[in-house]
């Protein structure tokens, strides 16, 4: 095989390796019982412990959007309620899932990759395997499960807190009252939006955890390799979130 052909086929090799990893993670139901505790641990770490940072980011993005929308759109023709009409759907459709996704790509993605990478280079993964455990299921399934269960939860929190942040700034900054904001948000509300946002969160949760697991699980090259995997996990999670965001928007909207 020539070098250029190898180079050309590399992405497919990676895709295949990644898919098989995910496949093996879930196709070993025999000792699933043992993973229950792990899954709860990961849900705790990935989900519950991420609430503060997600809340912070969501509150600020809601607040900033409110201020900027008022700056951009308010004119004699438009009532103040238009701010609510823009901020709430932005939060629900785009900012909620994507801000949560980016924050967690850094927080959760890097953490997963560092954990698994360290386990790889210190032979802990080999130790699991040598004991007769399915290390892929044992390590990866709980993390992905925790991701796809807890991300939608974080998304809901992000939306609620983001809209709350918007309302707070609207009131404090004198842009519009809570009633106007809520009125605006209600006028242009489509019930499909939150479900769309929820599906985004679900997909992003899967992307971040699975990509980071891949990066971490196949770490090579000692401490430096762990550092590389950690960075890659955060960066690639963000890239795939953006791609998935577009694909979902094109296919579902």
């Amino acid at each position: 095989m020539t070098y250029s052909l190898t180079w050309f086929l590399r992405p497919f090799t990676i895709l295949g390796k990644y898919s098989l990893l995910i496949f093996h993670a879930f196709v070993s139901p025999d000792d699933f019982r043992t993973y229950r505790k792990n899954t709860f641990n990961q849900m705790m770490r990935i989900g519950v412990e991420s609430i503060p940072i997600v809340a912070l980011a969501a509150a600020f993005s809601g607040a900033v959007t409110t201020v900027q929308v008022s700056y951009q759109l308010v004119s004699v023709f438009l009532p103040a309620t238009v701010i609510g009409s823009v901020v709430a759907p932005s939060m629900i459709l785009e900012l909620g899932p994507v801000v949560t996704g980016f924050i967690l790509a850094g927080r959760v993605g890097a953490r997963i990759a560092a954990e698994l990478g360290t386990m790889r280079v210190t032979e802990q993964i080999d130790a699991l395997e040598a004991m007769g455990l399915n290390s892929i299921s044992y390590l990866i399934a709980p993390r992905i499960l925790a991701g796809i269960i807890m991300f939608p939860m974080l998304y809901v929190a992000a939306c609620a807190i983001g809209i709350g942040g918007g309302i707070t700034v609207a009131n404090l900054g004198g842009y519009l009252t809570t009633q106007e904001f809520v009125q605006g948000a209600q006028d242009f509300f489509r019930p499909f939006d939150p479900y769309f946002g929820l599906s985004k969160a679900f997909v992003f949760g899967f992307i971040i955890t699975s990509v980071s697991c891949y990066m971490g699980y196949f770490t090579a090259g000692g401490a430096e390799g762990v550092g590389k995997s950690t960075t890659q996990a955060a960066v690639m999670s963000c890239v795939f979130i953006l791609i998935a965001d577009l694909v979902l928007a094109v296919t579902l909207l």
């Binding site: 951009q72 023709f77 438009l78 238009v82």
Partner: peptide, 10 residues
């Protein structure tokens, strides 16, 4: 009603 629109609408 028109006034509820975005800037482009105005």
């Amino acid at each position: 009603d028109l006034a509820r629109l975005s800037g482009a609408g105005t």
